[in-house]
Simulated assay, not measured.
Amino acid sequence: MARFLIGTIPAVGFDAVVSPYLYLQGTVPAFEYPRSDLPLQVHFVGSFLSTPPADFISPSWWSDLQGDKPVVLVTQGTVATETDDLIVPTLQALADENVLVVATTGGQPTESIKLAQYPANARIESFIPYSHLLPHVDVMVTNGGYNGVQMALVNGVPLVVAGQTEDKPEVCARVEWSGVGINLQN
């Protein structure tokens, strides 16, 4: 196993990326697997919440969030942004359901969603701050980005996750293990 040196303390595995002095983990203990080897300097501090942008201008359809339909947020994230992975299948699957589907492309142009016609129940934006949107959401479909998952949990929003790149398979496994959502990648 590779060994790394942090300060003057040799480290192996998980310890190689953790400060030997203090490590603040942006989640709660219930989102971490039970483990006997957790370094003592790791402290769970809950989600790192962002300050809502003061200059946020809500889209023209924002009042639709106040209706009687459940709101489904689908987002592909900001790194792995291929809309055919989650956004397009979710829009197609829910097109005839009595729900409002809000799709965010993670900053990509909304035109990256390649559908001949958007479903009538869909609202599509390139970005909406989670701090503004998640209080209105009933379920979130996501590729399992860590911050998005943590923000959903803070807002009590159950998850449907399907991540295949970066740290996302591990985040998705934790979503399933902790019982806060469904992992589609099993």
Rank of each mutant, 00 (worst) to 15 (best):
Asp138Ala: 13
Pro29Asn: 13
Ala116Val: 01
Ala122His: 08
Thr81Met: 04
Asp138His: 15
Gly107Asp: 08
Leu159Asp: 10
Arg174Val: 05
Thr104Lys: 07
Leu153Gln: 12
Leu22Ser: 07
Asp64Trp: 01
Gly107Tyr: 08
Ala93Ile: 04
Gly106Asp: 15
Val149Trp: 11
Arg123Trp: 13
Pro53Ala: 09
Ser112Glu: 10
Leu184Asn: 11
Ala95Thr: 04
Leu24Ser: 03
Gln108Met: 12
Thr83Ala: 15
Asn121Glu: 04
Ser126Arg: 05
Pro20Val: 02
Gly77Val: 03
Pro34Val: 07
Gly77Lys: 01
Ile57Glu: 15
Gly179Met: 09
Ala173Val: 06
Ser112Gln: 12
Tyr21Ala: 03
Leu153Cys: 04
Leu24Val: 06
Leu49Asn: 14
Phe31Pro: 00
Pro34Asp: 12
Ser112Ile: 00
Val180Asn: 15
Ser131Gly: 15
Ala152His: 10
Asp84Ile: 00
Leu184Thr: 12
Gly106Trp: 13
Gln76Tyr: 08
Lys69Asp: 02
Glu111Val: 00
Glu82Asp: 14
Ser36Gln: 15
Pro39Ala: 13
Leu86Arg: 04
Arg123Tyr: 14
Val17Cys: 01
Thr51Gly: 03
Gly156Val: 05
Ser178Gln: 12
Thr142Gly: 01
Thr78Cys: 02
Phe14Trp: 09
Gly67Lys: 10
Gly77Asn: 06
Ala54Gly: 14
Leu65Gln: 09
Ala103Arg: 04
Leu184Pro: 05
Pro89Cys: 04
Glu170Gly: 01
Leu73Arg: 06
Ser131Val: 03
Glu166Pro: 00
Thr165Ile: 07
Gly26Phe: 07
Gly163Trp: 11
Tyr146His: 08
Ser126His: 11
Arg3Ile: 06
